[in-house]
Design a protein around this nucleic acid. Structure first.
Lengths: 148, 148
DNA sequence: GTTATTAGGTCAGTCATATTGACATTTTAT
DNA sequence: ATAAAATGTCAATATGACTGACCTAATAAC
């Protein structure tokens, strides 16, 4: 009986290890940026805003809401903080003056680089240690995980 | 000038894609379990409790607090819910009767299996599609990411 | 050229979660 | 007998996200 159920249990255990690897890896990647943000009274939401505005300059508020999947009320607070701290600037769209085009200031770009740069450096170090083969395999797995 | 800065920008972009792959992969893995839990008014914390109690039956409350890294006050609520829903049972330690030994009920085990099973199935499908080589590479990358 | 709609912002209320602090109970250790 | 540990609970506080309502300014539609 033990012989019959053991093989699937071994695989189940391996898959549990994969689950834990995902959670602990994720935790490790966000730990330092979270700590940096906390020093300024900010949190992971602010990083998400900085990241998407930084990589899509000229984004409108509505587009950002769509990307983040939050309500404008819950975005409003973090956005005001980022504006007050001088990390985000806005300019009116020239054709439709209702629309605010968002972008990072220099210091906003610097903060974003510090945050995401820490994460990129972590990946870069791991990829360099393990090689391009492992990197490509890792990407295949992650992309398929996110698939459907 | 462009020739000088482009190579590093390409790599930066690749690393950004790795970052996004991690976030979207993680999101995909927790999406279904989160939805299942929400149907019963539960959340990811409850899953974490079920997971660790299920894999460490006989755990004490203090040990669980250590694993989860939360306060006993914040654990108390979710634990009471899980007890009231009949997912978790306790028995006194025989030698030290101050200690409550936690374990899952049959229905608790069933719920845990449904939740983590969905996640394991997602991994199993991806690993099966991509093969053992990719699986091992993925594990190496995740474990190194979590390292220090 | 009114009217409707859109982009953005804000106020109020609610709900969930996590925290600290204080305190109580039971049981074990000294 | 007293100290300490394991657990539980009450209260107050803080945060963050949500819905709903309402507002302005600007554009679109009729």
């Amino acid at each position: 009986m033990t012989d019959l159920i053991t093989p699937s249990s071994i695989r189940e255990h391996e898959l549990n290890q994969a689950l834990e690897a995902l959670f602990y890896g994720f935790k490790a990647v966000v730990a330092r940026p979270d700590a940096m943000l906390a020093e300024q009274g900010l949190s992971r939401v602010h990083h998400r805003i900085l990241y998407f505005v930084g990589h899509n300059p000229g984004l409108s508020v509505n587009e950002l809401l769509g990307i983040l999947g939050v309500t404008k009320q819950s975005l409003n607070g973090p956005m005001r903080q980022l504006g007050r701290l001088g990390y985000i600037q806005t300019r009116q769209d020239t054709r439709d003056r209702r629309i605010k085009r968002l972008s990072l200031t220099d210091s906003g770009q610097a903060l974003e680089t510090a945050l995401s740069g820490d994460q990129r450096a972590r990946f870069a170090r791991v990829f360099k240690q393990l090689g391009a083969k492992d990197e490509q395999a890792w990407r295949r797995v992650m992309n398929k995980l996110a698939d459907r």
